[in-house]
């Protein structure tokens, strides 16, 4: 097996948030101990409800934010803030919003060259420009786009530009935080194809964050399902979609609407309160909404095993 490009061990990010007037500050456990490995040429998808910590994870892997505990290894090197500058070239991030993430006052050519100016100051102007033009072509844009401004592009084209910019430093890993959620179906398919082609060509590893399970099912090799900052299930795409083990994964899959009006609906309806990330229940975090809950679930915290397909649940689905 090839050496993973990224390895995370017990990765954690807590935030201190203001408790409000006359209240002590509270700890918000956005990511509470996550382990995973990502290999070259592979896609690891992270799914889960809004607020479960997906973007926080993305920011840690992209070295925008420091973990409060745990360990991250990139290319065999332990990630410490003093190495960020060196390692950052290997890991680049693409954000959800293709409108907000490009500077409106800069031409596309300048936007693409910016990472080189910062990270590779010894390159000549000509070399930089040549590289930017080559990248524009790689993502399927036209040479005349080089001198245009972001507002002259459609959402899908802007997302291509964002991908091109992320590739300028020849990264090994792309962190894709909801890269197609803001796009139309027809544009979404073009961007997903682009990512597939680039991966085949450059052996890129993707950390692909999405809440759209039909997209994940199309692109992923492996999947992590997160709930309130923790991984509740991990497995290969095939295994996880064919036989989800965690009740939450099962509910998520059953609630995902299918684009087939003739399909039978057998949605699992969740009741119970959505817990706040500020007061994650002891025991299993899903217990307040779970229909299989037993006393043990409220008392003890279930964890993932080392099996390739595993769920953090005492009473997994069979």
């Amino acid at each position: 097996m090839t050496q993973p490009v990224i390895e995370a061990n017990a990765l954690q990010r807590h935030y201190n948030v203001n408790g409000g007037l006359f209240q002590p500050p509270q700890t918000l456990k956005a990511v509470a101990g996550l382990d995973f490995k990502l290999s070259p040429g592979k896609t690891l998808a992270v799914v889960g409800e809004s607020g479960c910590g997906k973007s926080t994870l993305a920011r840690m892997v992209a070295m925008i934010e420091e973990p409060t505990a745990g360990e991250l290894t990139i290319d065999g090197k332990r990630v410490l803030p003093e190495h960020w500058a060196d390692l950052r070239q290997s890991v680049q991030i693409v954000f959800q919003d293709p409108y907000g993430s490009l500077n409106p006052r800069h031409r596309i050519g300048a936007i693409l060259q910016e990472p080189l100016v910062i990270n590779k100051p010894d390159l000549s102007r000509e070399e930089r420009e040549a590289k930017a033009r080559e990248m524009l072509k790689l993502v399927g844009l036209r040479p005349e786009h080089f001198d245009r401004y972001p507002h002259m592009f459609s959402g899908g084209q802007r997302q291509r530009i964002a991908v091109a910019r992320a590739l300028m430093l020849d990264p090994k890993v792309l962190v894709l935080d909801e890269p197609v959620s803001a796009l139309d179906l027809s544009i979404q398919s073009a961007i997903l194809n682009l990512l597939t082609e680039l991966q085949d060509r450059l052996q890129l590893a993707y950390l692909f964050i999405s809440h759209d399970l039909s997209v994940v099912r199309h692109v992923a090799d492996d999947v992590i399902v997160m709930y309130l900052g923790r991984a509740v299930e991990r497995g290969s795409k095939e295994a996880l979609f064919a036989a989800p083990k965690h009740p939450y994964t099962k509910a998520l899959l059953s609630a995902t609407p299918r684009a087939n009006p003739a399909a039978e609906k057998d949605r699992i309806k969740l009741t119970g309160e959505l817990p706040s990330p500020l007061s994650i229940p002891d025991g299993c975090p899903f217990a307040p909404r779970c229909w299989k809950v037993q006393d043990r679930c409220r008392a003890e915290q279930p964890t993932l095993s080392h099996d390739p397909h595993s769920a953090a649940c005492f009473f997994p689905m069979d």
């Binding site: 179906l185 027809s186 979404q188 398919s189 073009a190 997903l192 194809n193 597939t196 082609e197 039909s214 997209v215 099912r217 199309h218 299918r258 684009a259």
Partner: peptide, 18 residues
């Protein structure tokens, strides 16, 4: 064409696009 672009209808690695 819109319905063909749905990932869940995909039969190939590359999706049909418009």
């Amino acid at each position: 064409a819109l319905l063909d672009a749905l990932p869940e209808r995909a039969t190939e690695r590359l999706l049909p696009t418009i």
